[in-house]
């Protein structure tokens, strides 16, 4: 089956500053793909390279099986992108903004926009300059969704949204993915990827540290160990062979020991700290 996103050996630098180094991964049809990493890890650089906003030095990027460089701006007929910062033309109303975005896609998205505005509780008569960050984010979500694209790319979509709207946002993603779409979700909110993504890529310092299914990552062999060794409490994630750990513990006074699968937060921190 054709990958929706295929990135091979992507390298992008900003002059002397690191961008991303030799990153490769694929996103399959129907995936809700979580893209995790701290600020400055290179997540946005990969997204912006993929969407043609910035140019990269090495590597190849394919969307829907075609090189992005040959797709050009036509790719956006099939992509809904929500940038991390939701900015629009400040003098326009929400209604005009949504109409402008739909017209640029050459589609009549009025029914879909109406449904999305109702579900996300957006007042379309307000001017963009009157909106709070959260409401601008909602408008950005609607702009990305209203033309019913095949691929959604969300960069930090839920920052500024209240918990109810975050839940509604993920219900909408689930609805579109059930209808055949694919979603790339860049975030550093672990609970979002744990609860909604089926695959996860973890970035650190411009490199891809790990890519796997959410299930595998949470059951990856790493164990969360809590024990009382020689009267000292210890709490850590252990990635090695447990037999080696048992050998290491021989001769020590083990007062108590608990070995369990770590929560995703600890897996994530483990890759960050490597």
């Amino acid at each position: 089956m054709e990958h929706v996103i295929e990135i091979n050996n992507l390298t992008k630098s900003y002059g002397k500053h690191r961008g991303v180094i030799d990153v490769s991964f694929c996103v399959e049809p129907g995936d809700i793909f979580g893209f995790l990493g701290p600020n400055g890890a290179g997540k946005s650089t990969i997204i912006r390279s993929m969407l043609g906003f910035i140019h990269y030095e090495q590597g190849e990027i394919f969307l829907f099986g075609e090189p992005v460089k040959s797709l050009g701006s036509k790719m956006f007929e099939r992509i809904g992108y929500m940038p991390s910062e939701a900015w629009f033309y400040s003098g326009m109303t929400v209604r005009d903004t949504l109409k402008f975005a739909a017209d640029m896609h050459k589609v009549d998205a009025s029914d879909e926009a109406r449904m999305l505005c109702e579900r996300l509780q957006v007042d379309t008569e307000k001017k963009i300059r009157e909106l709070s960050l959260g409401n601008r984010k909602k408008v950005s979500i609607i702009c990305a969704m209203q033309h019913k694209p095949q691929l959604f790319v969300f960069d930090e979509p839920t920052s500024g949204l209240d918990p109810l709207m975050q839940a509604e946002f993920f219900k909408l993603i689930d609805m579109y993915v059930a209808g055949g779409a694919t979603c790339l979700l860049s975030t550093h909110v672990l609970s979002e990827v744990k609860n909604h993504c089926n695959r996860i890529a973890i970035m650190k310092e411009g490199r891809l540290r790990k890519i796997d299914t959410t299930d595998h990552l949470t059951k990856s062999g790493a164990k969360h160990i809590r024990m009382l060794r020689d009267g000292v409490e210890e709490d850590f994630v252990y990635k090695g062979d447990l037999n080696d750990l048992y050998k290491e513990l021989e001769g020590h006074d083990i007062g108590d020991i608990l070995i369990e699968d770590p929560p995703l937060e600890e897996v994530f921190m483990h890759y960050y700290e490597v």
């Binding site: 043609g52 992108y81 940038p83 910062e85 640029m104 950005s140």
Partner: peptide, 10 residues
């Protein structure tokens, strides 16, 4: 900051 909004269209 409207570049990404505009150029995320065809």
């Amino acid at each position: 900051h409207t570049g990404e909004f505009l150029y995320a269209t065809p």
